[in-house]
Design a protein around this nucleic acid. Sequence first.
DNA 1: CAATGTGAACAGTTTCACAGCT
DNA 2: AGCTGTGAAACTGTTCACATTG
Lengths: 234, 234
Amino acid sequence: MVSRTGRRRRISEPAVARLPIYQRIAADLLRSGQQTVSSAQLGRLADVTAAKVRKDLSAIGSLGTRGTGYDAVALIAGIDAAMGAGRTWRVVVAGAGNLGRALVSTSGFLVEPYELVGLVDSDPSLLGELVSGHEVTSFEALEAGAAEPVDIGVICVPGSAAQLVADRLVGLGARSLLNFAPRVLSVGPEVHVRSVDLSIELKVLSHHAQADPPPAESPGAGPGADAGPSGRRP
Amino acid sequence: MVSRTGRRRRISEPAVARLPIYQRIAADLLRSGQQTVSSAQLGRLADVTAAKVRKDLSAIGSLGTRGTGYDAVALIAGIDAAMGAGRTWRVVVAGAGNLGRALVSTSGFLVEPYELVGLVDSDPSLLGELVSGHEVTSFEALEAGAAEPVDIGVICVPGSAAQLVADRLVGLGARSLLNFAPRVLSVGPEVHVRSVDLSIELKVLSHHAQADPPPAESPGAGPGADAGPSGRRP
DNA sequence: CAATGTGAACAGTTTCACAGCT
DNA sequence: AGCTGTGAAACTGTTCACATTG
């Protein structure tokens, strides 16, 4: 049965990244017995403005009730639908080094609609090793044995190998890549890449710490309608 | 000696995250014997437009030479200066689980201007364990022994502990936090937070895979001046 | 003449303010 | 009365086009 959502607009890229946050908050509230959430409460807990919450949620259809807020169950289901939870996504992790093993072992990463269908490494000495119940195999074995295509490839190999591994993952059908290697990948326009570069994260933080003037106490809440993101008063 | 850079504007947030990419590319080229880089070449390798490269670089001062391009050595030094490489940054990793251990062990993460001054965990059974030469200690031991303040805290604890750990890290002086826990942190305005939420990354990717129409071959290179980001033709 | 640096046009997001339901 | 949904305004970042410089 298809859930009756209102018309859906295009969802902006930043909004797509925020929806799962709202979803997690709604799930937490539901678990603590709350059936309904307002945009103001979601905004406070997600550290965004209430208006932004409403704009984001209106993009996936009218899930709220005026005067009441959003029904937590409907909200969770609506976001699931928008994020592609309707099917199982086949994930391959490439690279069984520190990071690859950590990701496979992290509870909450490869769960629910994401199924790990391969953990591969080019180092023969790692082959056969078990990582949280998953055997490390060679890329060749995966290519030989794969009946269905891969959906998502996670790249945890050194930078020097990243492009090659990306190409092979795309060859296995992956149209989405999550890249942890410190390289910019070159892929066709049909492939989506999201990169997480750990060393860059540190550099961005130290840039701010260096460049920021002591950010002068925020000017006492203006007359605007919605309350802004709160942060924490020091 | 202070390098003579031109005036510096404010650097936009996205630009700050791109600068280290240009820097890495410049270092690679320099290593392969190239002394000079053009914005076009940087753009090709970083998968951004040449105009964006120039705008980004002009924000950290005029480092280029018209007709020639950017001197690789000067470019690397200029970006180092902009990113805060002028001093050492004291980093504490909180959480010695899968991810925390992987980060500490990952070569290329805690290097150069970033110094690991603590790896802490609340689990007593982990205390004393060595991770890549760093001993796991308790938060209490770190608090007792810390003479100088912490600059950057890296949060690798479960979501349920993240806020508490963030507060303690801020208490140790951290004004920058890198958060891998699936929680939105509430901190004062003097604290910068960057969050990497692994499960959200997968959801964003599956959203695109689900929602994207086959993205229709890009309209044959327009008449514009600069070449756009290339990607790879399929 | 090649390639930077940059004002101006453009595009995408966020914020505002309020009309419209419940 | 309370809270959503949404046009319009404001803002931020990107792209364009070209004057400028070595």
